[in-house]
């Protein structure tokens, strides 16, 4: 057992419980009494966390969405899918490791899975480029979408990225063009597409995997046009106004749901998805299953028309 890092807003109420649990978890030879204490403390922690998590601000949710122990694409693949086979490369230039893609079986059905992949430590983060794709990542994703189309396999995507990588090479190799191409081409993919925002839905880099028939969002994930930090540095001219920017942007799941962008919000356990990855994965699996059932019944023509309609109706004006 491991104790996840506490976020600043959790420290005051959960700090002492955490410290006690940490000691008990680390104890080599646990006695019956220790297990009982652990159980008791865990229950107590959960009820305290529930109180805090009942009302999180948009900035606090952003922190939870970025938590270093939060389940990533690879965790969901492990928990929900069978026989995952990773597929590499865009067949043009490179294999972008910030996007994990492959074939898998979901509840007995062949599917294609594509998602942003973050790392848990420095070495992994270098490997996965902090989940920030270069153009090759989007091209690899599109290659897989077309493969899914060819073999009539539904597509499931996991969204978790700070955004597309702002690099010199990325620009030279057509970052904007790669994202735009995915946005356009995904409207012509003749199989159901289901997207789940599991952590950070960072701008165009997230959108390029989320032109889907159904979009689900985990309760404490965020989805926005710009990160709170970047928004603050432009509109407040100071990145330290990130909290204010997050509230102004309203980057939470509720807002996305209110505007009809997201189809459902998947509940997390009190204290965030990272406190129970298995249970969170189970809920995500159920949402996918439900969507698949609905979408599989639709004809290709209906599916494509409704996908366009879903995005065509998003917008608020007088």
């Amino acid at each position: 057992m491991e104790v996840p890092i506490l976020l600043d807003f959790e420290k005051k109420k959960l700090g002492s419980l955490h410290a006690k649990l940490k000691i008990l978890y680390a104890k080599r030879e646990k006695r019956e009494k220790d297990y009982q204490t652990i159980k008791k403390l865990e229950t107590k922690l959960q009820s305290k966390a529930a109180v805090i998590y009942k009302k999180l601000s948009c900035w606090q949710r952003t922190q939870v969405a970025r938590h270093s122990s939060r389940p990533y694409t690879s965790d969901y693949i492990q928990h929900i899918f069978k026989d995952f086979i990773e597929i590499h490369g865009d067949r043009l230039y490179k294999d972008d490791r910030s996007i994990l893609a492959g074939l898998a079986v979901f509840n007995g059905r062949s599917v294609v899975v594509v998602g942003h992949q973050k790392g848990r430590n420095t070495q992994e983060n270098i490997e996965f480029n902090f989940g920030m794709p270069n153009p090759e990542g989007y091209r690899k994703a599109l290659r897989l979408f077309k493969l899914a189309d060819k073999f009539s396999m539904p597509i499931i995507t996991f969204i978790d990225t700070p955004g597309a990588y702002p690099g010199i090479g990325a620009e030279k190799r057509g970052q904007a063009s790669a994202i735009a191409t995915n946005l356009q081409q995904m409207f012509s993919i003749k199989v159901p597409i289901i997207a789940i925002v599991i952590g950070e839905g960072g701008s165009g880099g997230a959108l390029a995997l989320s032109v889907a028939d159904h979009i689900h969002m985990l309760e404490n994930s965020v989805y926005s046009v710009i990160s709170p930090e970047s928004c603050a540095s432009i509109l407040w001219r100071d990145a330290s106004y990130k909290k204010e920017a997050a509230e102004a942007l309203k980057n939470d799941a509720k807002t996305a749901f209110r505007f009809g962008i997201v189809d459902s919000i998947i509940e997390e356990v009190p204290g965030g998805a990272h406190r129970d990855s298995m249970l969170t994965a189970k809920h995500v699996g159920e949402a996918i299953e439900k969507s698949l059932k609905t979408l599989s019944r639709k004809s290709v023509a209906t599916l494509l028309a409704e996908r366009i309609e879903k995005f065509a109706k998003v917008g608020e004006f007088l």
Binding site: L183, S188, G204, Y223, F311
Partner: peptide, 22 residues
């Protein structure tokens, strides 16, 4: 995309791309 309309602005990217597909 316009920051002041948050995620709604982001979605206009998909919407206009849908237009190009039409």
């Amino acid at each position: 995309a316009r920051m002041h309309e948050g995620i709604l602005s982001l979605m206009q990217m998909a919407k206009t791309s849908a237009g190009t597909s039409m």
